[in-house]
Computed example of a mutant assay.
Amino acid sequence: MPALSAATQSDPLPLLRLLLAGGPSASRRARLERPDAASTHTDPLLDARLERVPTHELDRCLAWLAQPRHHLIGWNDPRYPPLLRQLPQPPPGLFVAGDPDHLWRPALAVVGSRGASAGGRDNARHFTRRFCRAGLAVVSGLAAGIDAAAHAAALECDGSTVAVLGTGPDRAYPAAHAGLLEQVAERGAVVSEHAPGTPPRSSHFPGRNRIIAGLSLGTVVVEAALRSGALITARLAAEAGREVFALPGSIHHPLARGCHRLIRDGAQLVESPEEVLAGVATLAGRLAAELAGPHRAGPSDPAPATAPADAGAHRLWRALGHDPVPMDLLAERTGLTTATLSSMLLAMELDGRIVVEHGRYARRPTGGGTAT
């Protein structure tokens, strides 16, 4: 993919103008891939919209970007999340508050009803904590109910979490979640395709749901009514080739009916986080290989037959010992990014090759077995 030029990186105005112009995302992505297209007037409608972008909106975005840990990532930026890129209609740009590296971590979406039951919130917390211990990020939409429970659980266990908004990145919805929004931005990432200051609009939330699905290896629906945004997220995940999981419930519980419909339509019925982790293992392994790239292995100490065969995983296997070590030390030993390590470690855990305790990783003493 083409990288941003130095001029574009130092001057966000062209990208901001393109994002604020609106219109079909395909034409705006094409303009980012071929900036010279503007001189040939291949899309006069887009050119006209670009001329009408209000100056005060540009100024508001520039003021937001001037603050620490605020980022603008365009379609042609190397930081653009690789899984999101695979969507049929990925957004041409993202406003990110926090650390954009969280968008590269292998992730699971945890979604469900705004009016969740106490048991549903407990399940969201339980699944989220297990996913975070396995090295995955948890993606959700900062809504009341299941979303808020998932974000809070990830923060409580020092896990990675990403909140995708249907507003601007500076607007919590509901407003009562302003504190939660601030915490996610401080310790994870807040993402929106909408400019700072954008208020909540019902038309924005299906797009928000597609980004949640697009950033994730799979979507876990904890509770949902028959008419629910969580079902839209699940449908979009399936259309993008991602896994969909649903927790069953009582036939008398209205918030179980959406999950039961998903199961009838082909979603995987799951009763434990381990079933979800096993269900995304293949896609996680493929992502790890794509992120790792053609690394060279060391000249000696070949990995044992039970270790993964690719060179990046070989390097990681050599860096692991029988004493648990944290992620940052593994990054130092291997030279691999946190996102790459997270995917590889997840695949190794699911293969039963390593154990994970409190965010530290070690080779399994028996050298094999089944992940627990």
Rank of each mutant, 00 (worst) to 15 (best):
E243G: 05
L283T: 01
E223R: 07
I232H: 08
A303P: 15
P273I: 09
A307W: 13
V222Y: 08
F245R: 02
A224K: 10
L287T: 00
P299F: 09
L236V: 00
A246S: 08
S250R: 05
G279F: 08
R242N: 02
T233E: 08
P294C: 10
A303R: 11
P273S: 11
I251D: 11
H253P: 02
V220A: 14
V276L: 02
G214Q: 08
A305P: 03
A246W: 03
S228P: 13
G249R: 04
A224F: 06
A225E: 09
L231D: 05
A284R: 00
T306N: 14
H295W: 12
L269W: 09
I212R: 08
R257Y: 09
G241T: 03
A230L: 10
A309E: 05
R261I: 01
L247H: 00
R227N: 10
A309T: 13
A238D: 03
A240D: 12
G214N: 13
I251H: 15
A288T: 01
V270Y: 00
E290Q: 07
P299I: 14
E223K: 13
R286E: 12
A234P: 06
A309I: 01
G229M: 14
L269N: 03
E271K: 01
R235L: 14
A246K: 02
R286L: 03
A284M: 00
A289Q: 10
S300Y: 15
L283R: 06
G258Q: 04
G241M: 04
V244G: 06
V280L: 01
R235K: 10
G298E: 11
L291K: 10
G258R: 15
T233I: 06
G293F: 06
G266K: 08
A234H: 07
E271I: 11
L269K: 01
P304C: 09
A240P: 00
H252G: 02
A213Q: 05
G218M: 04
V222Q: 08
E275Q: 15
P248K: 03
L287R: 13
A309V: 04
L217I: 07
S228G: 14
L236M: 09
R261K: 04
S250F: 09
T282W: 00
A278W: 00
A238S: 11
L277D: 04
A246F: 06
V222I: 06
V220C: 15
A230P: 03
V280Y: 01
H260D: 06
R296I: 05
A224C: 15
P294K: 13
E275C: 04
